[in-house]
Design a binder for these strands. Structure first.
Length: 355
DNA sequence: CCGTGTGTTGAC
DNA sequence: TCAACACACGGG
């Protein structure tokens, strides 16, 4: 009759398996005759094959998601909705087989999602899928990036604000660097990104002349001049500020993640150079305070609206075939917690991620 | 006890 | 590679 027939013998021999007993009991209540084919047909109602790739039905009406790699199945978790499971497979497929992998939905993953996938291991992605946190984490990354942009804009306003206020100091930003832990650590040096160093602080290419003394006016403090030893390290092939830098770090109280900026006077003929800095923690707090709740609410709103719409946890999208209700109460609670967590961790990671 | 997800088999 | 099927087993 079908491919299952070969297994009929087996299932017949196992007559007393508890599962079959249950099946017989439930069926026997209404029907007096309980044949093997009937048991099979009942099983078949429970296990409606999925129309989606990588999706398998579960006995309880939910849907499993799986992908194969190297002759081995990678389990991606179980889901209430068939399409939810299908999307999980899609994510895994793009991570395991590339962005152009065959998927269930055409949904062109955004460039941000592409980068997100690329920056996480397969195990991490699978973990997120199984825990149903993939969307959340993706949104978090995007949200964090937005925070960085906001801070940077704010930062530039701080730096440039005095340009408009007083005509005494007309400067332009040459470049800036978010200082690394080693920039503010015991090494007593600041690495100048090569591209900026060679563009704005060129050292004469000859071997013996790879050291120079730089005078930088303090753009924050009036009159103060910082003197740095600026050189090229052949060993690491990098441009660095050495002597004098640790004093700057100490006096300004720089921490990893803070921003150091280099400027040049616009009008004066001597093209005076300036150095400035920005404490990121304070700046971040300033953004929150300054823009008050409007900004916060809007960001919060992003999370609120985006998370539910893409996560079909709530009954809205997920009504179809299997009628099996869902413990949506608990899910909602989880989601609220997730949102709060998202916001919380955003606030903290913002600082960390600047590095 | 229930549901998950693994063991396994056989198609493609 | 992939999914159908059965059920061992681990968490609640």
């Amino acid at each position: 009759m079908n491919a299952v027939s070969s297994r009929d013998d087996e299932s017949a021999t196992i007559t007393d398996s508890p599962e079959k007993m249950i099946m017989i009991m439930s069926a026997g209540g209404g029907n007096t005759t309980t044949t093997t084919t009937e048991v099979q047909s009942q099983r078949r109602t429970k296990l409606t094959p999925s129309r989606f790739k990588g999706v398998v039905p579960q006995p309880n009406g939910r849907w499993g998601s799986q992908i194969y790699e190297k002759h081995q199945r990678v389990w991606l978790g179980t889901f209430n909705c068939e399409d939810e499971a299908a999307r999980a497979y899609d994510v895994a497929a793009r991570r395991y087989r590339g962005l152009d992998a065959i998927t269930n939905f055409k949904t062109v993953s955004s460039s941000e999602e592409a980068e997100f996938l690329g920056s996480h291991s397969k195990a991490e992605i699978v973990d997120m899928l199984r825990k149903h946190t993939y969307k959340d984490e993706l949104e978090q990354q995007i949200s964090r990036r937005r925070q960085l942009i906001i801070i940077n804009h704010h930062h530039h306003r701080i730096i440039n604000s005095s340009d408009h206020d007083d005509n005494k100091l007309q400067t332009e930003v040459l470049f800036e660097k978010t200082v690394t832990p080693s920039d503010v650590g015991k090494l007593n040096r600041l690495v100048i990104p090569k591209q900026h160093a060679e563009k704005y602080f060129p050292i004469s290419g000859r071997s013996n002349k790879n050291v120079v003394l730089m005078n930088l006016k303090d753009r924050a403090g009036p009159g103060k001049v910082w003197r740095f030893r600026y050189s090229y390290w052949n060993s690491s092939q990098s441009y660095v500020l050495t002597k004098g830098w640790s004093r700057f770090v100490k006096e300004k109280g720089l921490n990893a993640g803070d921003i150091v900026s280099f400027h040049r006077s616009v009008n004066s003929a001597d093209k005076q150079l300036y150095v400035d800095h920005l404490k990121i923690i304070q700046a971040a707090a300033g953004v929150i305070e300054e823009e008050e709740k409007a900004r916060v609410v809007r960001l919060f709103g992003v999370n609120i609206f985006k998370v539910p719409s893409t996560t079909n946890i709530i009954s809205t999208n997920c009504v179809d075939n299997n009628n099996n209700n869902i413990g949506s109460k608990r899910k909602k609670l989880e989601m609220m917690e997730n949102i709060i967590m998202t916001w919380d961790s955003t606030k903290k990671q913002r600082v960390i991620d600047v590095v």
